[in-house]
Structure formats: C-alpha cells, structure tokens
Simulated assay, not measured.
Amino acid sequence: MKFRTLKKRTDTYKKKLGQIPGSIIYTGKKLEQQLFIEAFDFNKEQCIVKQLSSIEEGFEFKLSNSITWLNINGLNHVDQIEKIGEHYELHPLVLEDIVNISQRPKIDDYDDYMFVVLKMLYYNDDDEMVSEQVSFILGENYVLSFQEADGDVFDEVRERIKQAKGRVRSMNADYLLYVLIDAVVDHYFVIIETLGNKIEDFETEIFSGNVDDDISKHIQDLKREILKVRRSIFPLREVINRIEKNDSALIHKKTITYYRDIYDHLIQVSENIDIYREMIWSLMDMYMTTISNKMNEVMKVLTIMASIFIPLTFIAGIYGMNFEYIPELSYRYSYFILWGVMIVLFISMLIYFKRKKWL
C-alpha cells in the first residue's frame, strides 16, 4: 500500500521528465473535465455575463475599454490553453506552469502582464478538504483565471460584479485581481476555523476518555490537512509582499493598500496554523498519555488481584501438600476455619487497599 501511494505521488513529475522547457503538458488527473469558460465584461454602467462555447469568443473583450474577467475551467484542454497564450502573447513557460498543477504559489512579472499562482482551499459536500491550483493573468484591462475543474470560491465575487456591489465595477483590473485573491484568502479562515473545531472535538473526546479506536488515524489526517494549508499559505505571503513592493504600472497605488490587507490576513492565518501544529502534537501526546493511563489502570487491577490471591494461594498450597501427617487435617472444623481465615484475610486486604486509595 505504501508503494502504491508513493507511485501515485510521483506520476505527476514523471509526465514532465525529458520534456522541452515550455512544453504544455497537463499534469493533473481530471482528464474528462469539460471545458467551461465564463466571461464578465463590465464598467460602472453595465455588466455583460456570457458563457462561452469556445475560447475564440472571448478574444473580442481584449480590445474593449471595460474590465474583463475570463474564467477558464478545464486545464486538460491544452489546445485551448495554447490558443489563449497565442492571443494574449503569453510566455511558453507561463502556459507550462498553468497546466502543471504542482506549482508552488508564486508571482512572475512580465512586460505587459503579471502571472500569479496560488492554491484555493475549501471543503466539499463530503467534508473533505479540496486543494486546487488557480492561476491568474493580470493585464491592463483584463484578468484571466485558470482552474482545473468546476467548483470554486468566487460565487460572491460574481454576485458583486453582477449587482454592482462594492468598488469592483468602478476600479481597475488590479482591484479585480485583489478581489479574487481576497476570496481565496477569506476561505482560508473558514478552513482554519474548521480545523480548530476538529482539534477541540478531539481534545474533548480524549479528556472524556471516550476515545475511538481510529482517533490516531483521524489525528494524522488532521495533521496532513494542516500541513497542506501551511504549504499553501506561507509562499502566498511572499507573493502578496512582492505585489505590494512591485513598481509595475499594472498595480495602482490606490490598490496597494488592499493587497496589504490581504498580507495582514495571511499573517493571522499563518499564526493560527502554527498554533494548530503545536496543538496537534499535544493531541498525540495526550492520546498516548491516555492510552498509558488506561494500561496503568489495568495493570493496577491485575496487581491488586494478584496481591490478594498470593496469600490465599500460599495457604491453599500448604494444606494441599501430600504429607501423610498434617495435624490440622484431623481436626473436625479445620475446613471451615481455613475458609474463615481466608475470607478474613481477603476482606482485610481489600480494606487496606481502599485506605491506601489503590482501589
């Protein structure tokens, strides 16, 4: 089982072995994902929302005076990704990174656009954490977002654009990128809140003594979730920091304050993650201590039982010897006296152990 897991993890990298740099090779496993493209073209006065049947339909928005957001789901359609790259004049290495889902959160600054990669985390309907890579291309008046599959955290952003809520319809494309990244970071808070609740539930369960046999496995799964969140958040801090200090014309000064707010949120999430990591180790120590205490209780009961029966066994052993002459055996009431002595001895030892608080 361990070998199969390791093989599954390394398949992603084997797909790119020996390939020419800039080769557009999808490294994910959702090969049957259908291509889904949605377009939002808006300004203060109006908003056009379209579901596109082909990527060519979205090319007309590039020359518009409004702000355009093209959201592309389905990284397995590399031919469509190539068409986007040709139309928007994206570097081949950018296209390679878009379809390579094992990318670390990062930012690359080019002459006419900015490339940002981050990890989107959320819980699905089965209460399982989903980690999906999201890539953004920020241009002068457009934002392109690339996702591996359907399902994201941008529903509120879509409603704000449609209903003209907030500043998104009156700001530039860099603010739209901020809104999208902020939606991802806001869901980090949902993730850590859920993780915190799980840790508290485990603490309560361990302290109450009602420990499930699979709790160690659940704790290990929770530990892996925390590490996954940590790997997504810590590099993103560097990304936001670089956006703040970037002198690109794509990032306006009035928008930098908003990105600084995202950075503050990431610091807060990072601190909570570090705290939860320590709490997870404490949970394991608590669990092992609980197991040890239960074992000690069992050993104490067994030891007390052995201590009680040792003298009784000694007495029974003496009078069970096969000597021809044992004076007490000839006495008529020896059997009842022996029982009485053994009962008195048994009760006395129980009283003694009770006073010592060993029972």
Rank of each mutant, 00 (worst) to 15 (best):
E96M: 08
K106W: 04
E156N: 14
K165N: 10
D97E: 11
V94L: 03
N141W: 06
Y142H: 09
G74N: 09
H87L: 03
Q147D: 13
V168P: 02
S102V: 07
F146D: 07
R104E: 12
E86S: 15
M114S: 03
K106G: 02
V78K: 02
M171Y: 14
Q133A: 10
E140D: 15
A149I: 13
E148T: 03
N124A: 09
V116S: 01
Q80E: 15
D150M: 09
I161H: 08
E128H: 11
N124L: 07
R158F: 11
Y113K: 00
D126L: 09
L93S: 11
K119F: 14
E86Y: 02
N71V: 14
E82A: 11
V116E: 01
L118N: 10
Q163E: 15
A164R: 14
A164Q: 12
H77N: 15
Q103P: 12
P105F: 13
I72G: 01
I98Y: 02
D155A: 11
A173R: 11
E96T: 02
V168D: 02
S102E: 15
H91C: 08
E82T: 11
Y123C: 05
Y110I: 01
I81N: 01
E128Y: 06
H87W: 08
I161T: 14
K106F: 03
I101Y: 03
M114E: 00
N71M: 10
D112A: 12
Y122P: 05
M114Y: 00
I161G: 05
K162R: 15
Q133V: 12
E140R: 10
I137Q: 07
V116T: 05
D127T: 10
Q147V: 08
K119Y: 05
P92C: 05
K165D: 03
E89F: 08
M120W: 13
V130K: 05
L118Q: 01
E156A: 11
V130F: 10
F115H: 07
R169T: 13
I107M: 03
V94Y: 07
K162P: 06
D125Y: 13
I161E: 06
E89K: 11
L118F: 06
S131N: 14
L138M: 09
M120N: 03
N76M: 11
L138Q: 05
R104W: 13
M129K: 01
V134K: 06
S135Y: 04
R160S: 15
E96P: 05
D155L: 06
H91E: 08
E156H: 14
Y142W: 06
S131W: 02
N71A: 12
E132I: 15
K162C: 01
K119L: 08
D127S: 13
F136T: 06
S170P: 00
E82M: 06
D79I: 06
M120H: 03
E86F: 08
N141V: 07
N172L: 07
L90W: 13
R167F: 15
Y142M: 00
V153K: 12
S135E: 06
V117W: 02
E148I: 04
D152N: 11
Y110D: 01
E96D: 09
R158N: 14
N141P: 07
D125I: 07
G139T: 04
V130Y: 12
D127C: 03
V99K: 03
R169Q: 14
D79H: 09
I107V: 15
I137Y: 10
V157P: 03
N141T: 09
N100T: 01
V116L: 08
Y113C: 00
D79G: 10
M129N: 05
Y142D: 00
L118H: 05
Q147S: 09
N100G: 04
N141M: 05
N73H: 13
H77K: 13
M171N: 11
